[in-house]
Design a protein around this nucleic acid. Sequence first.
DNA 1: GACCCGGATGGCACTCAGTGCGCTCCAAGG
DNA 2: CCTTGGAGCGCACTGAGTGCCATCCGGGTC
Lengths: 232, 232
Amino acid sequence: MSSKPPMRDALVAAAFQLFLERGYEQTTIDDIVALAGVGRRSFFRYFPSKEDVVFPDHERCLADMTAFLSSGGDEHEPVRRVCDAARLVLRMYNENPTFSVQRYRLTKKVPGLRAYELSVVWRYERALADYLRGRFAGRPDGTLQADVIAAAVVAAHNNALRSWLRSDGQRDAGAEVDHALGYVQSAFGHPPVRPVGELQEQRPEDVVVVVSRRGAPMWRVVQEIEAAFGRD
Amino acid sequence: MSSKPPMRDALVAAAFQLFLERGYEQTTIDDIVALAGVGRRSFFRYFPSKEDVVFPDHERCLADMTAFLSSGGDEHEPVRRVCDAARLVLRMYNENPTFSVQRYRLTKKVPGLRAYELSVVWRYERALADYLRGRFAGRPDGTLQADVIAAAVVAAHNNALRSWLRSDGQRDAGAEVDHALGYVQSAFGHPPVRPVGELQEQRPEDVVVVVSRRGAPMWRVVQEIEAAFGRD
DNA sequence: GACCCGGATGGCACTCAGTGCGCTCCAAGG
DNA sequence: CCTTGGAGCGCACTGAGTGCCATCCGGGTC
């Protein structure tokens, strides 16, 4: 399906070889194209800027994410769905752990690459926030909640991802991200608010008790109360 | 206290005049220094890059924020303190509303400026997260919670800030930010989460809501509450 | 006043990222 | 065979950012 341009891969390989052995800023585009044996102009045909060669597959991953969010499914648990979308990014990192660890070490010390990574992450966050804004349309503070939850999901994902990268890919990336995203879901999503008692088969004059541990947000409690009264 | 270099202000004024009348990318450093009547080299003495002239006071604001967080006070409500720190940024924007609105319009359409703004925002977020990490040291998921809460605070602040900027500074910036930060505090902090009824003096993390449909007898309500609390 | 000194400024040349344009080469297809 | 279009290449150009040195100027010293 996707044609593999060998030149692109050759440029990435040459670039990383030089970046690792002499540093990012000490490597010029001419150095890269000389090592790859291609013309200078061809570099900019595959990568719009020098930074892009460090993140060669994020464009594809971002497209995957928007496609995943566009395809419906699990409509009434948007937070969970957004967490699943974030896991796509982890999957990409996990496809090539050694490459990811090398890149992490590079971005950690080069300010320009950190800044570029921020703009990449920002686009992921925007994709999540836009999805949530659509799901939360009509709620009183819909866009606010969407933006905050998207930021929290991204922050949790990145926290776990970096912890995994710092371990040189030794730890279990999936477990760490699941744990981190679980924290966000417990703060914003359904799980932590569990009805005590037989909510399912409640008789009309029954008493419903909702207990929330771990500081669930007030609006979630209100939402649960409304659900208990059968309003939706 | 703070010496006022007139040259710096002249450069900012000249730069914005040109940015607004002919666009950011269409304006070169030479254009700016020619209009300001200074040498080209002096520009880079005051601003390390062309982007920096668009955000002339963020460096000072960031220093204010770290100073505010370093000076102790309100030790046992870290989330509230971090929200107060975020309000410092709003205050800076609010000191010069017309300038802030102009800059907002500029950064909205120039991708390079958006990317630079991200790196600025990231430094604020790091300052907040580092403070929270210190406060949460020892907690099981301390760094995770610190990162997530910092991201949520920044997202909420920016959501309100942008809403205010989009209104050309007409709406009440303080009120909008207070509302947005209140949402975050209600999700992560103790105080705003208040149980319905008279159950305030619980463990801070526990929220108990009792809903009684169709007038159940009082003893049933008490029974359910006791069951909920005795459950573990 | 002569002298000196340090900081602020200006001028200049240089590197390097990124762009526009026109050229060649080659493979597909008539 | 010729045509055509895309992929690669070479080259010249713009503009950001840097290093270096000359200059200017205000203040302090003798």
